[in-house]
C-alpha cells in the first residue's frame, strides 16, 4: 500500500485519471458533435446528436425527434466539457507536482455519472435518431392517379459518430474512467486523510508519552 501511495505513484495515478477524463471528454464530445448519419439525394444533410441540418430539395425540415435529441444532448455536452476541464487540470497538477484533493474528488463524483451519461447518449441515438431515420423516407416517389413519380433515392451513409455510440463504447470507457478516478481519488485523497489521521494519533501518543 505504501508503494502505491508514494508521491510519484500518486502523481502517476493523477496523471492517468486526468488523461482518462480528457479522453472520455473528447470521446463524448465527438459522439455528440460528429454526424451519426449523412444523407444525400432529395433529402440531404447530416444528423448528429447535438445538431442536425436536413434539407428537402434545399428547404430545411424540422424533425421533432432530432430537436429532442439536441435538447437532451445539452447536459451531456456540459458533462463532456466538465470532464475535459477537470482532466486538463489534473494533468496540469500532476506535471506541477501539486496536490489539490478537491479536484480529484470532483472528478471522481463526475465520473460516477459517466455510465448514465453514456447510456443516455446511446439511448438518444437508438430511440430518437432511430425514430427520425424511420420518419425520413428513403424514396420520395409515389404512385398516384397521375402515374408513377420517380425521384432519385435518398442515400443514407453512416457517419463517424455511429461507432462511437455503440453499446460497447457506451459501457467500457465510462467504467474504465470511473475505476481510474476511483483508485486515484482513494489514493490521493483518502490515503492522505488516513495518513493525516495516523499522524495525529502518533503526535497524540508522543504528547502522552
Amino acid at each position: 500500500m505504501e508503494k502505491f501511495s508514494s508521491p510519484e505513484s500518486l502523481r502517476i495515478w493523477r496523471l492517468l485519471a486526468g488523461v482518462s477524463l480528457d479522453l472520455y471528454g473528447i470521446l463524448l464530445l465527438l459522439s455528440l458533435v460528429l454526424p451519426i448519419y449523412e444523407l444525400k439525394g432529395p433529402i440531404e444533410g447530416s444528423i448528429s446528436l447535438l445538431r442536425y441540418n436536413v434539407y428537402l430539395y434545399g428547404t430545411p425540415i424540422h424533425v421533432d425527434a432530432l430537436d429532442r435529441a439536441s435538447l437532451l444532448s445539452i447536459p451531456l455536452l456540459a458533462v463532456a466539457l466538465a470532464s475535459l476541464i477537470l482532466g486538463s487540470l489534473l494533468i496540469l497538477q500532476s506535471f506541477k507536482r501539486e496536490s489539490k484533493p478537491i479536484l480529484m474528488r470532483i472528478s471522481f463524483a463526475l465520473s460516477l455519472a459517466f455510465p448514465s451519461v453514456s447510456a443516455l447518449a446511446y439511448l438518444s441515438r437508438l430511440v430518437l435518431v432511430g425514430e427520425a431515420m424511420r420518419e425520413i423516407p428513403s424514396d420520395l416517389g409515389s404512385v398516384t392517379s397521375a402515374g408513377i413519380l420517380i425521384t432519385s433515392p435518398v442515400q443514407i451513409f453512416q457517419g463517424p459518430a455511429l461507432p462511437l455510440l455503440s453499446p460497447l463504447l457506451s459501457i467500457f470507457p465510462p467504467v474504465i474512467v470511473m475505476s481510474l478516478t476511483a483508485v486515484s481519488a482513494y489514493l490521493n485523497v483518502y490515503s492522505f486523510l488516513e495518513k493525516d489521521l495516523h499522524g495525529k494519533r502518533t503526535s497524540e501518543t508522543t504528547v502522552h508519552s
Partner: peptide, 15 residues
C-alpha cells in the same frame, strides 16, 4: 413531450 411527426412535404402530383 408528445412526439410530432416530421414535417416532410414530399412532392406530389395528381391527375
Amino acid at each position: 413531450s408528445p412526439g410530432r411527426a416530421a414535417e416532410i412535404s414530399a412532392p406530389q402530383i395528381f391527375l
